[in-house]
Design a protein around this nucleic acid. Structure first.
Lengths: 195, 195, 195, 195
DNA sequence: CATGAATGAGTGTTCATTCAT
DNA sequence: GATGAATGAACACTCATTCAT
């Protein structure tokens, strides 16, 4: 019973922190604000997380865990490499648009981390990106992605486009965004001409 | 003579601030650090810029001005819409990779601005993006960009891919990045298959 | 137990602040001086009062509360309007000479307040003066104060004389001051002659 | 010619300073504000007065000089001691209501002075009050003021009433105030009864 | 487990004053 | 005489963290 309450408190705290970190940035959010939003007292906050940074790390950890799991699950629904890639794009967009603040923080919050935590998150992020790496590699093997192309670069361009678009184009669904993006990748947007 | 010295000081200050803002973020950079890096005293810093935020605004203002000017100049070198678009991509990448810290700050620092300054920068940013809008519109008119496509969305995807890639893929030249990106857009990376 | 200590601290802080505000003026007193005098740390001071002005407001609030209460009590001891007036004079002088710094601050410190706080204190001051207004009005009704006289003006002259005298004539008791003042009011000082 | 301009500048500076000191208090007025109001530059201000305090001292000096001179002139118009006293009251009120900011500063600004300057002003103030002392002494000699009364105390009560009233009762002329005050002193306000 | 008062180093900013020109 | 850029000590205030209860 008590444990349940404790867990609820902890979740409220993380949710509140994520919301504030997203809205105001890590540095401009005070622990008092987090505590107030989570309806606990500043002292109690430090009982669960020793420092403010620890909250951020926890948030990022969880977000990455979730992202990895979601992506893995999404691509499992198809066998065709191109189809799997498209499913990954959609899953990534769905996650970004899910309203989960911690995903957002994951993308932009790493600048606030100390060296130790920064490395830790980087490793987790690499794990997430490794999923994309294998997806792209599969596609090359299946012949639906050109050989002799820098796969890492393609991956970053894809992720960059997706991450950026959710910040700067509002009101569209993941499906709509996926379709447009897929058209762009398929060369259906730019018509071959000369250059 | 005095004026020259004053200008030099002012520039040293801005450069130092840009470097620190990029490295540590706006909130985590102290005015004392900026002053020390610029080899002036904290009080002298406030003689030129009333607040820390004013430095950030000035930095962003200048960066946007420069970006707009560079882009305008770059696309002026060609007449073919597709070629102009490619030149824009290259110019944008060159700017991002030029080592100018304030360009970086422009992309990620806006979260630190107060409401007034934020709106001001947003307006300038819109002016920069308007250049891209017209570039894309031209391309549609010339038939080398598909009609019936959300141009704003394409613009954000393009800019997102470019901005992201310079942060996460190091060691490549703007030309190399431009070539790969252009291949991606031209559909030469993903081979048409089914989906 | 803790609460008791906290209260003691709070009182020490207010006493120290009042003393310093009186001696050096509000603007020339630093929060560090107040903290040092109260034997707490600057940070702890702001835990209780968010700003230096808040301390001043609290001091004035309390002083006015005390003054109102003391005056009300004093005049309750008599029924004759003239006697009540005289008791009020004595009570006012006793308060001023009680060594309570906050009463002094109340008289001269309002210039340091911001607009909001200033209005608040002004309202409280009006409440205190309303007691004098009613005292004077009573005296008129009872015929011991001339009709056709500007009562507000008389009130200000009386309060002005009393407030000023404690600043510039030292060593006398409230009783002595009251007697002299009463003689002055009664026309026993200036002998009727011509003008 | 140059001298004339210099004098004009100096006067503009003093007027501006007096106005600001009255409105915002000495401590809250910055030299930059004074300089701006006097339309000179901060550096030039210090050419004429070495410190901010020096301006305040000069202002007080002049005000006291003027007050002394005005009072002396006013009482010279009559020979009867009571009449002279009444003229002094009127002259004092006229001065206070003349809109000359420095007179106001003289009354309330001494708290801002350092020890040295404070003593200096105190001596000047004593000289002004000595005029009142002699006025009152004359009145005693002439029999129109009761013997066996603390003259210093009476003086402070009179000055206190006058100084206070101009701050707290607006819209009345010096003549009106003088009449009411004189009635108060003459015992025409409080009717003798018992106490 | 939870509290909240207390801490104190650190923050952005102010401003009277100086001084080379 | 006059300037205005530069100074740097001082200011009010913040806030992540601690710890006695």
């Amino acid at each position: 019973m008590t444990k349940k309450l404790a867990k609820e408190r902890s979740e409220r705290l993380l949710k509140a922190a994520a919301k504030l970190f997203r809205e105001k940035g890590f540095a401009l959010t005070t622990v008092r604000e987090i505590a107030a939003a989570a309806k606990i007292l500043p002292g109690s906050l430090h009982y669960r997380y020793p420092t403010k940074e620890a909250i951020l790390v926890k948030l990022m950890d969880d977000a990455l865990e979730r992202a990895t799991s979601v992506l893995r699950q999404a691509v499992g629904k198809a066998n065709d490499p191109a189809e799997r890639l498209k499913l990954a794009v959609k899953a990534h967009l769905e996650l970004l648009l899910s309203g989960d603040d911690s995903i957002y923080i994951l993308l932009y919050g790493w600048r606030s981390l100390g060296e130790a935590a920064s490395g830790r998150i980087e490793r987790l992020r690499t794990r997430y990106e490794a999923l994309w790496d294998s997806l792209l590699y599969e596609a090359v093997s299946a012949g639906c992605l050109s050989k002799n192309i820098d796969l890492k670069l393609i991956k970053q361009m894809v992720l960059g486009a997706l991450n950026w678009v959710v910040e700067h184009s509002s009101g569209l669904t993941p499906d709509e965004l996926t379709e447009t993006f897929w058209m762009l990748l398929s060369g259906e947007v730019i018509r071959k001409s000369q250059s």
